[in-house]
Computed example of a mutant assay.
Amino acid sequence: MARLARNARAYLLSLQGVSERMLDAHLQNWQCLRQESIADLYRALLHHAKNRQGMPNTIGDVARLHGIFFDFDPNQVAANYQTHMDILNQIVAQGVSTAGVIDPNNQRSHWVIYAKAALSAARFLRDFPTAQSFHDFVQSFYVNQHSRLALPLLLKEELFGFGFALACDFLKESGYEGFVKPDTHLNEICRAAGITTAESDFGVFKDVVAYCTEHGLVPYEFDKLIWLVGSGNFYLSKRKLPANKETFIATWMQRAG
């Protein structure tokens, strides 16, 4: 195992209450995340579409919107809504509780952004008749690290409001273990370790996936390892521990072992 991954693991196991079993459950969770239906994939996209600052509190639990989105059938959504305004009107008509009044003229409104994302995601998924056809589509980008880069770039263009990192997060958290999310934890720790000097999320993704390939690491598992160092959020065990990436960088990162 590469030094950074080995020392990150040792650091996490040094935290009170963290066991090998608890840590591995988080690292290997990708094996349980693959969506089994197009409705599940659409629901996952709707969940990730609200993954930006402040929006989770505005939108709330996606499950409560099942009536708006025809039990998460993207074909029905695409067929019944011509514009995002139709979605907003239906939210009002069905009396869905919202944080504040929906202002359709405010293009920075969370609900306007979310409705646009929901419609673009439905139109995108129309091209996939089954979940397996989507899985095959994703797998076709696994040829090499360069082709893998192309998929989040494509999703960034197809899905309204999805940047590169958010597209990566959707893929990673949908059971596609070959992807990482270039967030603040991965970016800062990998730069400090000399794995990347890239300033862009695109560049960090490319360098980290290359690093994982070189050292025989599963990208999802390496990503989750670094994320846990930065966040301390062992969510599967419902435990938030005082992990600290600054402490790790200063005292653990270069340890031999």
Results as ranks from 00 to 15, higher is better:
T83R: 08
Q28N: 04
F162V: 10
L241Q: 07
G67F: 01
A192I: 10
Q31E: 07
F234V: 01
A25Y: 11
Q139C: 15
Y11N: 10
A198W: 09
E188H: 12
G232L: 10
L225D: 00
I113W: 03
S200W: 11
V204N: 11
A79E: 15
R34P: 07
Q139K: 13
A10H: 08
E246R: 07
V209A: 01
L13W: 02
A198E: 05
A165I: 08
D103G: 10
V229L: 02
A150H: 06
K224M: 09
Q132K: 08
Q90Y: 05
V180W: 02
W227Y: 06
E221P: 14
Q145L: 04
G175N: 01
V112G: 05
A131C: 13
C168P: 01
N75Q: 12
P182G: 06
C32E: 15
K238A: 10
G17Y: 06
N187C: 15
R34K: 07
V143F: 03
L45M: 11
L217K: 03
Q82Y: 14
G216H: 09
F137E: 14
A49L: 01
K240N: 10
E36K: 00
A243W: 03
L186Q: 08
Q28Y: 12
I226F: 03
G257D: 13
R108E: 04
S200G: 15
G216C: 13
R191P: 01
I226E: 04
S174Y: 04
H185K: 07
F179Q: 13
V18N: 15
P129K: 02
R6G: 09
A10R: 13
E188W: 12
D201L: 07
A2S: 09
G95M: 11
S237H: 07
T98K: 15
V218A: 01
V138W: 03
R21E: 11
L171M: 02
V208F: 02
D73I: 11
S237C: 08
K116N: 06
A25F: 05
R126P: 13
Q254D: 15
Q90F: 13
V218S: 11
E221N: 03
C32H: 15
L149M: 09
S140H: 08
F202I: 03
A44N: 13
A99S: 05
E158P: 02
M55P: 12
